[in-house]
């Protein structure tokens, strides 16, 4: 494995983790990850990083008073009241 190959794989991991999962390039990355511990660790740690960021941003509920103030600012509060 040359360092150039590593570099190319690292660039492709972005696509692999997100989209185009069936593309030939992604298949190439998947095959490579099975054989290369270095790139596999890189892939796993990037994936873990993204998962952690996603988890900590989860469960943000907008407070109800924010919604009420929004309707008021937009002059839509009468409509909201009439729907209740």
């Amino acid at each position: 494995m040359t360092s150039l190959d590593h570099k190319k794989i690292v660039e492709q991991i972005c696509d692999f983790m997100g989209e185009d999962i069936d593309s030939p390039a992604c298949q190439e990355v998947a095959d490579h990850l099975k054989m290369c511990p270095t790139c596999k660790v890189y892939f796993d740690t990037v994936k873990k990083t993204v998962t952690l960021c996603r988890d900590m941003e989860d469960e943000k509920k907008m407070p109800e008073d924010v919604q009420s103030r929004l309707f008021k600012v937009l002059n839509l509060d009468e409509i909201k009241k009439s729907k209740k």
Partner: peptide, 20 residues
């Protein structure tokens, strides 16, 4: 990226339970 992957990547902390 080459520098990063070759100098830092060898520790696999992805399964470390404290990273949550």
């Amino acid at each position: 990226f080459q520098e990063s992957i070759e100098s830092k990547v060898f520790i696999d902390w992805s399964q470390d339970a404290s990273l949550n």
